Computed example of a mutant assay.
Amino acid sequence: MKYSNDTTEMNFILLGLSDHSRLHQILFSLVLVIFLASLVGNSLMIFLIWEDPQLRTPMYFLLSQLSLMDMTLVSSIIPKMVTNYLLHMRSISPTGCGVQIFLFLTLGGGECFLLAAMSYDRYVAICHLLRYHLFMSKKRCWHMAAGSWLLGGLDGLMQADATLSFPYCRAREINHFFCEALSLVHLACANRAIFEFFMSICCILMLLVPLSLILASYMLILARVPRIQATEARKKAFATCSSHLAVVGLFFGTIMFIYVRPKSSWPLGCDKVVPAFYTIITPVLNPLIYSVRNKEVKGALRKWLQKHIM
């Protein structure tokens, strides 16, 4: 496919996932389908959680925030990809680039802390069941959710502002399918070593602090679960924890592969394929993971369908 000369002196150029037209068409169709499935799946999850009284619990409230973050993440990246493809364009304005960087880092960092909050919820539910409503009150849940958004927003704001403050006087072609801070700053014509160092430290802290909290919660949970007498309660604990651990593994595994592993050891094209996984694939998998093995979610969907459609 040929792209029109839609650039201006100030705009950046997104090279996309592939330069081959036939492969690009296949990828475009696949990404569009996944995007729509992600919107439907996460919207349905949020709707069921707020519609069904049985799902109005701290665990599902935090899950609704996770779905909201996933929806916002894919919506900040995919529509621009689709627009550029349909209009035969590749350019993105500095403002649009800054918005993508801000949203990507805000949602990525926010999701790290939200997953930590969800692991704490599971810890309290399993290890302190009698005091669950005291530890996980409605007010505390809102504080956890707001704190996750706020911490992610501060990280996104600082890094987006610092990234766009560099002078870009060389070729403005970003070898990525969205404005990613590390890919963009490589185009700067100023010394970026100090910025890259502090950015790496910031990313590591945003990953390791929540991950440490998650690991600590699950170590305590693993010590407690074998002592649960009721078989049904033990099965439910394993089901909810395994779903959460699957989401944690997908999210943290792919992000740490990008930001912790040295770039010199990456296979060719890995810098775009792996981000595509956690920005496009993971948001559509999360509602599936939490719904397939969850009887309460499936029951809420069944009741709604019987009431309004069947």
Rank of each mutant, 00 (worst) to 15 (best):
M1R: 10
K2T: 12
M10P: 00
G16P: 02
S21L: 01
R22N: 13
H24K: 14
L27A: 09
L27E: 10
L32F: 05
V33D: 03
I34T: 07
L44C: 09
L55S: 06
S64H: 02
L66H: 08
S67G: 10
S76P: 01
M81W: 09
M81P: 01
V82L: 14
S91H: 12
I92K: 03
I92T: 11
S93I: 10
S93N: 10
G96F: 02
Q100E: 08
Q100K: 03
C112R: 01
C112Q: 08
F113M: 02
D121S: 14
A125P: 07
H133I: 00
M136D: 05
H143I: 15
M144H: 07
M144I: 03
W149P: 00
G152K: 01
M158C: 13
A162I: 06
R170W: 00
R172A: 03
E173R: 15
H176W: 14
C179H: 04
V185W: 05
A193Q: 13
I201D: 05
L208H: 06
S217Q: 05
E232C: 10
S243F: 07
H244F: 04
L245V: 11
F251M: 05
F251T: 08
M256G: 10
F257R: 12
P262A: 02
S264L: 08
S265D: 09
P267H: 04
G269D: 07
D271T: 09
K272M: 12
A276I: 01
F277N: 02
Y278E: 02
T282Y: 09
K295N: 11
G299A: 06
I309H: 12
